[in-house]
């Protein structure tokens, strides 16, 4: 489940490989062709982001000319300033930190509790309830937005952050993710021992479950933050440019709120920057988390 477990098959000592095994794809050393093709994939992955920064450092007029700019200009900070002020990205970033931060903490805690129950506790209907949990991942968000919008209007909650926080306080994905981890990572004897010692349920959770779950909680936290930061449909319905999240502000930019393309690119760059930094710092853990979820899923 952890990244080190996942890379284990690759890390086997070379001596154990016979010549025949060389035919196995996973143990072959990559040749130059592999590196070239991977390089092309990497270029396609990164070029649009690099070009966003280039475009954000130019002027609107320059961006309408052929050939398009291929190197940085001198307007990056001016455009970022404009995006910050005109498109409300300052407020938007703060709001997104509040929204994504709250959702992340809450999802991680509640998913761990539910995941623990499904993984280690015996109770009636647990199998059916787990299936139901997985099944809910199939429901598109479109099925909920009309009533949510009506209730929100009745409550006078338009433009308030709790409308986008409350619906995602805990997710089916998180619950399932934690369940899959805890099934293996948490020895049942440990819970039994704690119970024999007379520990209450909450004490078991605090002193046994949370410590065992910590690596997976960190990964789930990262994945949830990315998801919450980038969530789009419900936020653009529930919020307006008066009190936007980052995605709402970017939506306003895209629909003509500020017509300057260089400023729009500066906004796109600013709105993505926090996640790019997170990927730079925790990329390995995020990759490990996605791969771990895949194996068991």
């Amino acid at each position: 489940m952890t990244t080190s477990d996942l890379t284990l098959p690759q890390a086997r000592p070379k001596k154990t490989r016979s010549r025949r095994v060389m035919g196995a794809g996973k143990q072959l050393h990559a040749g130059p062709v592999t590196y070239i093709v991977l390089g092309i994939f990497a270029l396609v992955s990164l070029a649009p982001l690099v070009w966003t920064a280039i475009a954000a450092s130019r002027t609107d007029r320059r961006l309408a000319q052929t050939p398009p700019p291929l190197w940085f200009g001198g307007n990056l900070f001016k455009n970022m300033q404009a995006a910050w002020d005109q498109a409300g990205l300052g407020t938007a970033m703060l709001n997104s930190v509040i929204v994504a931060g709250t959702i992340t903490v809450s999802t991680v805690v509640f998913s761990t509790l539910a995941g623990f129950a499904f993984a280690k506790l015996r109770f009636k209907f647990s199998g059916v309830l787990l299936l139901l949990t997985i099944g809910t991942m199939m429901i598109p968000p479109q099925l909920a937005v009309v009533p949510l919008y009506l209730w929100m209007s009745n409550l006078g909650w338009s433009n308030q952050l709790q409308t986008v926080i409350l619906p995602t306080l805990v997710t089916a994905f998180g619950t399932f993710f934690m369940r899959q981890y805890l099934v293996q990572a948490l020895p049942s004897e440990l819970i039994e021992a704690a119970r024999v010692d007379g520990a209450s349920s909450l004490r078991v959770v605090w002193h046994v479950v949370f410590p065992a779950a910590r690596p997976a909680m960190a990964v789930l936290g990262l994945l949830t933050f990315v998801f919450a930061w980038n969530d789009f449909l419900w936020p653009i319905i529930a919020l307006t440019q008066q009190n936007p999240t980052v995605q709402v502000a970017l939506n306003s930019l895209g629909t003509g709120y500020v017509p300057d393309q260089a400023v729009i690119m500066a906004g796109a760059l600013l709105g993505t920057l926090p996640l790019l930094i997170a990927f730079l710092l925790f990329g390995k853990q995020i990759v490990g988390g996605i791969m771990a979820g895949a194996i068991k899923g």
Binding site: T52, F232, Q247, L250, N251, A268, G271, T272, F279, V287
Partner: peptide
Amino acid sequence: RVVMLTPYATSVAAATLV
């Protein structure tokens, strides 16, 4: 692996604007 995943860090809105 991280490089291949970076587009995933970009939101729908940011990616589409670009």
